[in-house]
Write a protein that binds this DNA or RNA. Structure first.
Lengths: 290, 290
DNA sequence: TCGACCATGAAACATTTGTTGCACGGTTCT
DNA sequence: AGAACCGTGCAACAAATGTTTCATGGTCGA
């Protein structure tokens, strides 16, 4: 049988976990959740805290291919050891096309995106949030990859304003919704180059209807930003790679939701609590402790 | 005698260092320089590596006010313990409701998210991408707010592998798809605390079916990460604010798609070009020049 | 120079560590 | 039903741990 690539002791543990006896699973979960204590404190200590037999730890280690608990702990210790070089060391190396080219691609991408986030205008977001707060109803639009951002925004806003938020085209053709825009409402359009015709149509409809228009885009020159009351810019092309990055757009969306919630005050907080209580009641979530 | 304010064990050590006997100074310097090993390895081990007598460590500990080496090590261990709460939470607390409170909320949030991105393990993503590349079919799962990330991943992967990627539950009840998992396929589950039961069910189904499981989660201890072949971690709670942050998860998803595309080589590139050509032909996009 | 003092290494100590053998209770296969 | 098996807790085991004691060698002051 071919063993899976053993990257870290924790991943080995995780992989083997489901095929283990019940008690060993409990212990394994405990180790995974408290791996720092696992490297520092003694086996008996851990056993006492986990409410398990000390022997279970030795058996767990052997079950996943180590010679004993000491061996497993040594592996965990090494995995946790702080790297002497900075995490950006990969960049220092030449960008040759080697086996690590994928890794450097990713680190570069993440770095670039991290650098792009602070460029976002917090003031613009705060202003836009106030518009959302005042809006009687909120429409959200995003096509293709931006649809995901639109849906997140829709989800988060609906947590505390359920009846007043919806995605354009969610319940029928877009055109039906376009005719429903009214003054006093707000329309959010998310998009970047190349821009879809549909998003531009939504923006124009919002403008004609006298609704407030908030554009989340990669450029002030974006066609759906024309006539917008607020334009929130992010850097879609900032990351190397093949697809434009949505990290910035998502960060804007989240901030927008957070500030709008904050403006909502106690009323919003109550709505959120109600929603959460309902979800908990229907046992959507995994219970806290196993 | 009045004890000096004990901030950290290491600073106590540094302060007392000059007034110590020569041998104890050497040992003390060794401890300060290798404090990680000091917390994990045994006293005798350290003594051997430092070229000193084991007893020197006990004497050092007593010389700076501890009851023994065990006591000192316990203090070092606690000092090194990774904080469960994000380092930014403290800053988020002291905020008063001023005119600029919204702006600072946003900038803090963005900063925190930017800081979290480089923490993502590029190696883990590269490994996971290879699994995706080898998979005959790819299933994607994400509930509640994670659904947006799932859909982005679905969208980007389908750009160059249209027939082999789909979201669990997209075309009917989840249960139908759960029964369709096969060995050689890959299942991606995205989620963070509190974890939904549905996502755990998907993970278990994937495991039972012998499919490769990739978990994108906020903790290695996440229930749907059990048995996963790859776990990609992001920091959901890293940002101050009310909702957990999905920026990290999205960044992972994008990197995953990018590397998988890269692995796809010319075949993937051709599929992507075909897709784009089709979209252009149906005039989805606004034409280049206004 | 002698004696008191301290730093230091080696060895012996009691304790704690990780490990393993064993018995009990439950399940599964014949 | 019987037997073989497996998972589990308990207790005894040898090894390793941190600590202490003791003897040695050096230094400083009287």
């Amino acid at each position: 049988m071919v063993e899976p690539a053993k990257s870290s002791p924790l991943s080995e543990l995780r992989i083997a976990l489901p095929s283990l006896p019940m008690r060993l699973q409990e212990v394994g979960r405990f180790v995974a959740a408290n791996d720092y204590d696992a490297t520092t404190r003694s086996m008996r200590d851990l056993a006492a805290e986990a409410g398990a037999d000390p022997a279970a730890f030795t058996r767990l280690a052997k079950a996943i291919g180590y010679s004993g608990w000491d061996d497993l702990r040594a592996a965990l210790t090494e995995a946790r050891r702080p790297s002497p070089t900075s995490p950006f060391s990969a960049r220092a190396k030449g960008r040759r096309h080697g086996p690590d080219s994928d890794v450097t691609l990713i680190t570069d991408k993440l770095e670039a995106e991290a650098a792009g986030l602070p460029r976002i205008s917090a003031h613009a977001i705060a202003d836009a949030a106030r518009t959302l707060h005042d809006a009687k109803r909120i429409w959200i639009t995003g096509y293709r990859s931006c649809r995901s951002v639109a849906e997140l925004l829709n989800y988060e806003l609906r947590l505390f304003r359920p009846e007043q938020v919806q995605i354009v085209g969610a319940s029928g053709p877009d055109d039906l919704d376009l005719g429903a825009f009214r003054p006093g409402e707000a329309v959010i359009v998310i998009g970047f180059m190349p821009y879809t015709n549909a998003s531009v149509r939504v923006a124009q409809a919002a403008y004609r209807a006298g609704a407030r228009l908030i554009a989340i885009a990669d450029s002030v020159a974006a066609p759906m930003a024309e006539g917008a009351d607020h334009v929130l810019l992010f850097e879609a092309a900032s990351s190397p790679g093949f697809f434009p990055s949505l990290t910035g757009a998502l960060a804007i969306a989240q901030s927008l939701a957070a500030v709008t919630f904050s403006l909502g005050g106690t009323a919003a907080k109550k709505r959120l609590q109600d929603t959460e209580a309902r979800l908990a009641a229907t046992s959507t979530y995994v219970s806290e402790k196993g």
